Amino acid sequence: MKTFLKKHFKKFLIACFVIGIFIFSINFYIVKSTEAYVFSDIKKLPKVDAIIVLGAKVSREKLSYVLEDRLLAGVNIIYANKAQALLLSGDHGQKEYDEVNSMRKYILRRNFNIKKEQIFMDHAGFDTYDSMFRAKEIFGIKSAIIVTQDFHINRSVYIARSLGIEAYGFAVDESIYKESLRFNWRIRELLTRVKAFKDVLISSKPTFLGEKIPISGNGMKSWDTIEKAK
């Protein structure tokens, strides 16, 4: 019995080691292949077709601090004249949960001097892969600056570039958040990078596609009908 357990315990350890090397290798590759395209200084960013702000948790219409920081960074990049269009991409899969309209209303409420026509909305950005796929296929974006926190930025840029977007990342400062929260983000990111690698490898399709809305046009065409009428 002891021999049996010892034998299988060794196999278990070997399997864990192999899986660990696999996860580490993918993470290393994604970070190293994108680090040249990630910036924390707005002045160093190139001009692009659009700024893509990725969604995060909201409570009714109240933005989480994470999402608010992303939006403010996106607005500042627009102010720096790096792009004229702002694509807000997030989860609006349910009527009672709406990241994209919450983002849009936040911008308009704050009077950021951004025209309504500049604000595009992707209601089906259910995850980062869907957001990047739809940015290219629905909105026709060829070049973009992606805005999200540092832990998330390499994966975002990796997916976008793998799909054919000339993508750059702006890493929002996350040092203000609790260390325990940042640790949890990074542990989770180890696995989500593996999923991103798999999605790119097998050319996954997003949950939804739909009618094309060129980023060079009027952003209000991407708004909900009821919001257009206001």
Rank of each mutant, 00 (worst) to 15 (best):
Thr3Lys: 14
Thr3Phe: 11
Ile21Trp: 02
Phe22Lys: 07
Phe24Gly: 07
Phe28Cys: 12
Thr34Arg: 03
Tyr37Lys: 13
Tyr37Asn: 14
Phe39Asp: 09
Phe39Arg: 10
Lys44Pro: 01
Leu45Gln: 01
Pro46Thr: 13
Pro46Trp: 08
Ala56Asp: 00
Val58Gly: 05
Arg60Trp: 06
Glu61Ser: 12
Lys62Thr: 13
Arg70Asn: 03
Leu71Phe: 01
Ala73Lys: 04
Ile77Asp: 00
Ile78Phe: 08
Ala83Thr: 11
Ala85Lys: 15
Ala85His: 08
Leu86Arg: 06
Gly90Met: 07
Gly93Pro: 06
Glu96Trp: 13
Ser102Leu: 01
Ile107Trp: 04
Leu108Asn: 08
Arg110Phe: 03
Phe112Ser: 08
Ile114Tyr: 12
Lys115Ala: 15
Lys116Phe: 07
His123Phe: 14
Asp127Gln: 11
Ala135Gln: 06
Ala135Arg: 05
Phe139His: 07
Ser143Asp: 02
Val147Ser: 06
Gln149Phe: 04
Phe151Trp: 13
Ile153Glu: 07
Asn154Ala: 10
Tyr158Thr: 08
Arg161Ala: 10
Ser162Cys: 11
Leu163Ser: 13
Gly169Gln: 03
Gly169Cys: 02
Val172Tyr: 00
Val172Met: 01
Asp173Gln: 02
Leu181Ser: 14
Arg186Asp: 02
Leu190Ala: 10
Thr192Tyr: 13
Thr192Gly: 04
Arg193Tyr: 03
Leu201Phe: 07
Leu201Gln: 03
Ser203Cys: 05
Ser204Tyr: 02
Ile215Asp: 06
Ser216Leu: 10
Asn218Cys: 08
Asn218Met: 05
Ser222Phe: 08
Ala229Lys: 12
Lys230Thr: 10
Lys230Ile: 11
